Simulated scan of single mutants.
Amino acid sequence: MFALANWQLQRGLDKAQRMQSIDSVTNSTSYSFDAVLARTQDIQDLPISFSGSIESQQVFLLDNRIKQGRPGFDVYAVAKSNDHNVLVNFGWVAGKQMRDDLPEVSLPDRLNDAQGRVVLPSDNPMVKETATQDGLWPKVIQQIDIQFIEQVLQAEVLPFVITLTQNNAQFIRNWQPVVMPPEKHYAYAVQWLGLGIAAFFVYFFALRARLRSGLKKGSHEQDE
């Protein structure tokens, strides 16, 4: 329980640091594609403006995305900009009643001066990919695994994603880099700490009672 409290505390501190980093770049001008590529670190959440051609027929649908209680998908496709392939998140679309009935999306063949944010995808080893490397599109995926996408496309893809932020009638684009605020992690840390302290005192008094009982038993045996 103490370990869980410490883990939640660290998660809260990490979230607070990321929110501070986001605030520091929110009012800055958008970086060009070349400027982002020139940076070797600290590219997470950077605003970016870029242009590129889109592989509009090769659509990836990220599964299990929930918006306002409705299940749906985040729509991804690869853009080629400055001879580099980069995965682009076009936004969220609602799913249909039948799970096998995938939503139809229409992507442009090109983006010009598109505005977005740089996102570094995280790999969850507990998530098992169910998509196959075949020629069927759109392809439903369980997480953003750049290596898997490279295998599917048979091409190199940059290790970050650009999430588009401009309003669009077809997609919902309410970019939320931090879903759970730091305060919630701190509250969980306090709860785990309280449970740990309570468990410690229960153990302490139970052990003391057991030791007293053992001493009394030993004293009676000596008297006999």
Rank of each mutant, 00 (worst) to 15 (best):
N6M: 10
G12W: 01
L13I: 08
M19F: 05
S21Y: 07
S30I: 04
D34E: 12
D42H: 14
L46C: 06
S51M: 02
Q58F: 08
D63V: 06
G69L: 05
F73N: 04
D74A: 13
A79F: 02
S81C: 14
N82Y: 10
H84R: 15
F90R: 04
F90P: 00
M98Q: 15
D101A: 10
D101M: 08
D101C: 10
V105P: 04
L107Y: 06
R110L: 08
N112K: 05
D113F: 06
A114W: 00
V118R: 01
V118H: 03
V118A: 08
P121V: 00
P121K: 14
P121H: 02
D123W: 03
P125W: 04
E129Q: 12
E129A: 13
D134P: 00
W137L: 14
W137Y: 13
I141T: 07
Q142G: 03
I144L: 12
I146N: 11
I149M: 09
I149V: 06
L153K: 15
L153D: 01
Q154C: 10
V157K: 03
N167F: 13
N168Q: 13
A169G: 08
E183P: 01
H185T: 00
V190H: 04
Q191Y: 09
Q191P: 00
A199F: 12
A209F: 13
A209V: 07
G218P: 01
E224Q: 11
